[in-house]
Design a protein around this nucleic acid. Structure first.
Length: 279
DNA sequence: CATGAGCGC
């Protein structure tokens, strides 16, 4: 802006030329008046910014029916509006100046995390569902209904929960269990997304897409999910991907067949992926 | 070489 050479003429000059008769000043009074006003505008513009010129208008002498009255708006005849500023906010909700008492109460419970995640079991820095003590602790603060009552408070058959605890030690997701149970063809309602048998595929070219991997691994079994690790900014692949199968057996076959295979002049490396939380 | 993202009020 500052680099632009100041033009010799401004638009106000053009106005001046347009409004001002090429001949000598006409006799008509209103034209004369227009010229005066134009020159006054020009002076104001040359002297200050526009918003200042707006303030300048308040000092102008009035004309017409208001002629003779003192400068500035007359509240009796003029409505002075206030500036309306539009604020944009996410969710189309106006920013709340003060939280309600309930919100304050709730936020205090989670205050330790300061907006972060706080485990309801051990107050750790993780989700409750990921708490390492999730399986060893009975429930939330022990206040959780242990056995015999379900979450609705109605009695439940006690035999349901007891046998599963006898598996002992580490929890193994159904899809990762070796033996196929009677209910193997479990209708996946909503999809068991976390416990899918997942392969980590590394050494893929950076332009490999999800569909490429789906094609590549689709022949071994139903591919439940494909994720390609990408750079957050550029979107370019980072050379690794996750391929989740619905059946662990198929995943293992795919791993055995595809590991060491060439793809895009690179040698694929296919391993079991580690669950994200326990790394 | 390389291990995602979202759950949470």
């Amino acid at each position: 802006m500052a680099g632009i050479a100041t033009p010799k003429t401004s638009w106000a000059d053009d106005v001046d030329e347009l409004e001002q008769p090429k001949t000598q000043p006409k006799t008509e009074d209103f034209i004369d008046e227009n010229v005066k006003i134009t020159r006054k505008i020009k002076r104001v513009l040359e002297k200050s910014l526009v918003d200042h010129s707006v303030a300048e208008r308040a000092t102008w002498t009035k004309f017409g029916q208001e002629k003779g009255n003192k400068p500035g708006p007359d509240r009796a005849t003029t409505t002075v509006g206030e500036n309306v500023t539009l604020k944009l906010s996410a969710g189309n909700k106006s920013s709340e100046p003060e939280p309600s008492a309930e919100q304050t109460l709730k936020s205090n419970l989670v205050k330790a995390g300061a907006g972060k995640v706080t485990c309801r079991l051990c107050k750790g820095d993780h989700f409750t569902a990921k708490c390492p003590y999730k399986d060893s602790l009975p429930g939330l603060d022990g206040a959780e209904t242990p056995v015999g009552l379900d979450d609705t408070g109605t009695p439940a058959e006690p035999a349901a929960a007891a046998p599963s605890a006898s598996t002992g030690g580490k929890y193994v997701p159904p899809s990762m269990r070796g033996g196929r149970g009677p209910g193997e063809s479990m209708s996946r309602p909503g999809g068991s997304r976390d416990d899918l048998p997942t392969l980590r595929v590394t050494n893929i070219s950076e332009d490999t897409q999800e569909n490429d991997l789906r094609e590549l691994f689709g022949g071994f079994g139903r591919v439940a999910r494909v994720y390609v690790g990408r750079d957050r900014e550029t979107g370019a692949g980072k050379g690794f991907a996750f391929v989740s199968f619905e059946d662990k057996i198929m995943a293992q076959k795919a791993m055995e067949k595809m590991h060491g295979r060439g793809y895009d002049n690179l040698i694929l490396n296919v391993q079991w992926s580690q669950p994200r939380e326990q790394r």
